[in-house]
Amino acid sequence: MNSDSMQRVAVVGVGGAIGEAFCRALLDKPSIQQVFALGRHPAPLAEISEKVTPVAVNIRDEASIQAAAEHIDDNHLDAVIIASGMLHDDAVSPEKRLAACSSEAMHQLFDVNAVAPLLLSKHLAAKLKRNAEAKLAILSARVGSISDNRAGGWYAYRASKAAVNMLIKGMSIELGRQDKSLTVVGLHPGTVDSRLSAPFQANVKPGKLFSPAQSAGYLLSVLDGLDSRHTGRLFAWDGEEIAP
């Protein structure tokens, strides 16, 4: 199923630049009937379109995730897109040296980038249509590729994204046994012009800094071209498969 034929989609992380861009891009599709917008403060997105159903959720609280999922009927969605994630905040920044690593940063990034997508998938997978080529997509990152790591550093972020890549693989196997038409994939959005990337844009090559709308559009196009043959794998914004 491609995004031009999807009718109902849930997007998690709508408070972020890419999550909101996914919502807007989906609403441009004539087939879309409903977008469930999940985030801490999703209510303003309801002003975009009557097709948006805002659902408040704290992705670091499983009870909140479960409550949010109860707003969606089982066997109801064509796709779930988990676009939440964390690279840094006022207290945490990517480590350039081993000496800069801390237990607090490691726990926080694993919680947001790996545990949260796992628990969101746990509660939202049942909402996907069965035997209907539904899709579960989770934002990951190229830096989570172990074989592609040539620069070192960024220990907590790299490790948390490597972890979510393994979780995607595991979920693709289990959920694929229940529904062979289901596609579970990771998506790398490239470098997006947002608060997340703002401190690190100086070294981005010309033409490789995308607006949120660009990145979301690229990723929806990539997702359109994926099916159950590609499940369990990680793909970049340009369709390139990224090695584990």
Rank of each mutant, 00 (worst) to 15 (best):
M1T: 15
S5T: 14
M6C: 11
V9W: 04
A10T: 12
A10S: 13
V11K: 04
V12S: 04
G13K: 06
V14I: 10
G15R: 02
A17Q: 11
I18T: 14
I18V: 15
I18P: 02
E20R: 14
F22I: 05
C23V: 15
R24N: 10
R24T: 14
L27W: 05
P30G: 03
I32F: 07
Q33H: 10
G39M: 00
R40E: 00
H41Q: 11
P42I: 02
A46R: 12
A46K: 12
E50M: 01
T53V: 15
V57P: 02
R60L: 04
D61M: 00
E62P: 01
A63V: 00
S64W: 00
Q66S: 12
A69E: 06
D73Y: 01
D73G: 11
N75I: 06
N75M: 02
H76G: 03
H76I: 01
D78T: 06
D78W: 05
A79S: 12
A79I: 03
A79M: 04
V80G: 11
I81P: 08
I82Y: 12
L87W: 05
A91D: 14
A91L: 09
V92H: 15
S93Y: 10
K96M: 05
L98V: 15
A99E: 14
A100D: 15
S102P: 03
S102H: 07
A105Q: 11
M106Q: 13
M106A: 15
H107A: 12
Q108V: 06
L109K: 09
D111L: 04
N113H: 06
N113F: 03
V115N: 04
L118N: 13
L120R: 00
L120W: 05
H123T: 08
L124I: 10
L124T: 11
A125L: 08
A126F: 05
A126I: 10
N131E: 15
N131S: 12
N131Q: 15
A132W: 00
E133T: 10
E133G: 11
L136G: 04
I138A: 09
I138M: 12
S140I: 03
G144V: 02
S145K: 02
S147I: 09
N149R: 05
R150T: 12
A151W: 09
Y155F: 13
Y155Q: 09
Y157H: 11
R158G: 05
A159T: 14
S160W: 01
K161N: 09
A163V: 03
M166L: 05
I168M: 07
K169E: 12
K169D: 11
I173R: 13
E174Y: 04
E174Q: 13
G176R: 01
G176I: 09
D179Y: 08
K180P: 01
S181K: 09
V184W: 07
G186A: 03
H188G: 06
T191S: 11
D193R: 15
S194N: 08
R195N: 15
R195Q: 14
L196Q: 10
L196E: 08
L196P: 03
S197R: 08
A198D: 11
A198S: 14
F200T: 11
N203G: 11
N203D: 13
N203I: 03
P206W: 10
L209P: 05
F210S: 02
Q214W: 00
L219F: 06
L220A: 00
L220T: 06
S221L: 05
S221I: 03
V222N: 07
R229K: 10
L234M: 15
F235E: 05
D238N: 13
E241W: 03
E241N: 02
A243F: 11
P244I: 08
P244G: 08
